[in-house]
Structure formats: C-alpha cells, structure tokens
Amino acid sequence: MNSILVYLSVHDARIKRSSLEALSRAREVGKASGMAVEAAILHSAAAEMASVAHAHGASKVFCMANPIFDSHLNAPLIAGLSKVIKMSSPRAVVMASTEGVKDVLGALAIRTDAAVLPDVASFYVTSDEVTCERPVMAAKLLASTTSTHPLVFISVRSGSYEVSEGETVGTVEEVAFDFDEATLGATLREIVQTTGDTVDLSEANVVVAAGRGVRDESGKALVDELASITGAAIGASRAVVETGLFPATAQIGQTGKVVSPELYFAVGISGAIQHVAGMNNSRVIVAINKDADAPIFDVATYGLVGDCFKILPVLNAELRKIIS
C-alpha cells in the first residue's frame, strides 16, 4: 500500500525513454511522500534491464521473463501485470502512455479494482489521494483530476518529465508467468512494420513533421533529407497520412502520438487544434507555411512564410554545411 510501482515498457530490448521519465518522476514523488518505488519489466530479457531500473530509482524490480511479451498482445500482458500488481500491492501504478499501455490500461484496472488517471501531463501521489492534471478537449483545457481509491493507475504523456538518475541499491524478484493460452481469445497474426525509422518518434530530440502542403514524393524527399541532416524522426499530420505519403505510425496529434522534442519542424501543416494537441510542448517550433494566417504560426517560435518547395532546398543545403 505504501509504494509506487512503475511498469517499464520495452522496445527493441531497451526500456523506453518515456518509461524512464515516468520512473524518474515516481522516484521524486516517492521521496517526497515517503513511498518506496518498485518497477516491473515484462520481457524475455527483463533481467538484463533491471540495472537500468535500479539506476533510475527502483528499489525492487519484478522481472517476468517470457517471450510472449516481446510482441504486444493485450491478454498476456494484462495477466502478467495483474500478478505483479498483486505481489507489489502498491498505492499507485505509474506507466508511460504508449499505445501498448493504452491497450491494457482499462481492462487491467477492472481486473485489479483500480481507478485510472489516463494520459496525464503531471501527477502527485500521497497515501490519501492521487492528483493529476490532464489535457482534455484536444488539449484546449487542463483538468485537475483526483482519486482517493486505494489503488490508482497513472499513465504519463511522453515528455512530461525529464529522465534523471537516483542512487538506488536494488533487488530483483523473478516472477514466473503462468498463463493459460486457452483463455487467450485472441491471436496475433502479424506485425506490419510501417516505419523503418531508426529514431523513435515519441522519444526523438528533433522531429520533422510534414503536412498536406508537402503534397507529393518530391516534397517527401525534401522532408526526408531535412530529417536525415538533423537526425530527426519523421512525423506527419492526419491529412498527409490520409494521402498515403506517410505511414499512420508517424501521425502526431489527438488521434496520433504526443511528442515534445527540443526542435519541431512543421512543414506545410496548418496547425489544426487536433494536431497542435500532440506537439505544443515542443521546446522550439519552426513552422514553414505559405499561408501567413495559418494557425500554426500562433504556436511557432520561428515562422517562415513561404513555399516549402522553395525553402527546404535552401534550408537543407545551409544545415548540411553547419552540421557536417
């Protein structure tokens, strides 16, 4: 009851940065409210990642090593997490708001009798209550939300907190996964990789995002070039994803992902509220749009009014000189 459990999502056998952000915050909160912080890793190589969890503040790491967790399927993950939650018996469970987490959060809460504060921008935990602020109405408003339920789940938007290390000496507890496949009800047929990206969009320091203004393959080539020069991940608006020019995994916004890089390029994006909801926490926003009245300029740090097909070749050449 007097601890915070952090579920750490894994991608490519590495703990996701957004999970380490959540763990770093949990460590601070735990220190202030006098609660121990524990972590859970569910992955075939869980034990190898435990030291990373210790370094970021987990005193105990529950490792559930089973290859079934290496590709996402909700039923086993819910079963595995329920077991760890029972063992840890925490006040709150904190996790990064990834698509994988969003898929299990509701069902897991019902199974373990937990309240949920989903997709929060900030949170605090005491033994009496858990409080958070979460964006609503396409991030037009922030809602202060509270729960006094004995067990509360919190999923944290990526980029809400900085990753920081603590000096924690920790233990590892291996937990067996006993799952009856017959109860599965669902089978994973296939994973279709839509991006060959090396940089994970939700964790990137630089994002180059394309909108409908990028128009065609030649525009995409210019965007790709800017991304490769700046080491950026590629994002996209819904309108340009609909054209098929960019994959849906690249979509940023209310339907898509939330990003908060140091530097965000919005190329040919109008700045609809549902897009801005996913990127307005970026530190520096550069907008390139030929319409001087486009709403994206209301959130841009630096706005370039003009044709991206004229601006990008010049910008790419200039940045290449500086960065190489």
Partner: peptide, 29 residues
C-alpha cells in the same frame, strides 16, 4: 465514479514567436 474532476482551466498558452516573409535565402539565414 472512482475519479473526480475538481476544475478545468486553460493552460498557459504558448506565445507566438517571430514570423518572417521574404525570399527563401533570407528566411533560411
């Protein structure tokens, strides 16, 4: 319900920065 919204408010918005118009070379530099 297990959760309770105590208040909703407009977050401190971003301020619009600078906006330039002109030739591509000028804008980029």
């Amino acid at each position: 319900a297990l959760t309770d919204v105590s208040k909703s408010f407009s977050p401190p918005g971003r301020e619009a920065g600078v906006k330039w118009e002109g030739e591509a070379e000028e804008l980029v530099s």
